[in-house]
Computed example of a mutant assay.
Amino acid sequence: MRDWLIGLAAAVGCLLASWAVLVLLARRLPPGILRDLAAFIPDCLTTVRRLRTDPRVPRRAKIAVVVAGLWVASPIDLIPEFLPVIGPLDDIVVVALALRYAGRQVPREVLLAAWPGEPRLLNRLLGPPHGQGA
């Protein structure tokens, strides 16, 4: 039993160390699309947390963004995270769909206020505001 616990502790330690290395490397990325992609999921989680408590957000939109946040936080994925490039793809698609759904029900100013990242990335994801053509 003791060997099993030591192995588990070593695996968790390696996982946390690899996450720390990835965070440090992501912070060193030059400005551009790679840096935006590295920050996308953390920005989405922050947005979900902020929208969940905002009284201006309708219940349906809150449910959509909370489900997206749970999807991202869940260790169960359609595409395993360890696959390069496509690993986080299912998370990105689910979050993008939830934010687009919320974007139709929530004023854009509320979404932009909740988004900690580059506003141009969220604006591109949401598409043109209602009433404007493509």
Score class of each variant (00 low, 15 high):
S18P: 00
S18F: 12
V23G: 07
V23K: 06
L24V: 13
L25N: 06
R27G: 15
R28P: 01
L29A: 01
P30A: 14
P31T: 12
P31K: 03
P31R: 08
G32W: 02
I33R: 10
L34F: 10
L34Y: 07
R35E: 07
R35F: 09
D36E: 15
D36Y: 06
D36L: 08
A38D: 08
A38C: 03
A39F: 09
I41A: 07
P42M: 10
D43N: 15
T46K: 13
T46P: 02
T47R: 00
T47H: 01
V48D: 12
R50N: 14
L51A: 08
T53N: 06
T53I: 15
T53P: 00
P55N: 06
R56C: 06
R56M: 10
V57P: 04
P58T: 11
R59T: 12
R59S: 13
R59K: 08
R60H: 00
A61L: 08
K62M: 11
K62V: 15
K62T: 13
I63M: 08
A64D: 02
V65T: 05
V65W: 00
V66K: 03
V66A: 05
V67N: 03
G69V: 04
A73D: 08
P75L: 13
I76N: 05
L78A: 15
L78G: 13
I79E: 12
E81S: 15
E81M: 13
E81Q: 14
E81P: 11
E81V: 12
E81N: 14
F82L: 06
L83R: 08
L83E: 03
P84M: 11
I86D: 10
P88D: 09
P88I: 00
P88N: 13
D91E: 14
I92L: 11
V95L: 06
A96V: 04
L97P: 00
L97C: 11
L97H: 02
A98V: 02
L99A: 04
L99K: 02
R100G: 13
A102P: 05
G103D: 07
R104D: 12
Q105M: 14
V106Q: 05
P107N: 12
P107M: 10
R108V: 13
R108D: 15
V110D: 04
V110G: 09
V110M: 09
L111H: 02
L111V: 09
W115K: 06
P116I: 05
P116A: 10
G117E: 05
G117P: 05
E118W: 04
P119Y: 10
P119D: 07
R120I: 11
L121R: 13
L122Y: 07
N123P: 00
R124V: 04
